[in-house]
């Protein structure tokens, strides 16, 4: 089962996305800030991370950079309310698969995650 980690400060978003991808055959974990996310990634070895940008304790970009130093092949999809091309560029530079802005198209989120999951299954 593909392991998906949902990182968002908003609890209801985590709940909703968790239930949404559980229904689609994923093993889903949640974290509410970057620091918590890093420890979950370490302990569970998440395949895909949905990462929010604005979070307390540790924001999305810092988390992303930290993940890159950890030498993981975790795929990261940014899901953020911040519409900023510079930030999107920087995220892409750090190997983010997709930069999705909230409010998002649910099909787009679904399609992106499914595609990445397919690639992981094929590789793995």
């Amino acid at each position: 089962m593909v392991k998906l980690l949902v990182v968002d400060y908003q609890v209801d978003i985590c709940d909703f996305v968790k239930s949404f991808f559980k229904d689609r055959g994923f093993e889903v974990f949640v974290a509410h800030d970057g620091k918590e996310a890093l420890s979950v990634i370490e302990s569970t070895g998440s395949d895909i991370v949905l990462l929010d940008m604005k979070m307390p304790v540790m924001d999305g970009m810092t988390t992303l950079k930290a993940m890159r130093t950890m030498d993981l092949d975790t795929k990261v999809i940014m899901v953020t309310a911040i519409e900023d091309t510079d930030l999107a560029e920087e995220a892409k530079h750090h190997g983010v698969v997709e930069y999705i802005t909230k409010p998002l198209l649910l099909e787009q989120l679904e399609r992106t995650v499914m595609t990445v999951a397919e690639q992981i299954k094929m590789a793995g």
Binding site: D12, I13, D15, F16, S19, K102, P103, L104, L105, L106
Partner: peptide, 27 residues
């Protein structure tokens, strides 16, 4: 040019978070 949730209520996981999704006219 899109629709978004302005209010939402419900049990855990069922409730769609406010402002999280958008539906365009192509939906």
């Amino acid at each position: 040019d899109y629709f978004t949730l302005i209010d939402s209520k419900g049990s855990e996981g069922m409730k769609i978070p406010v402002g999280f999704i958008r539906l365009t006219f192509e939906n």
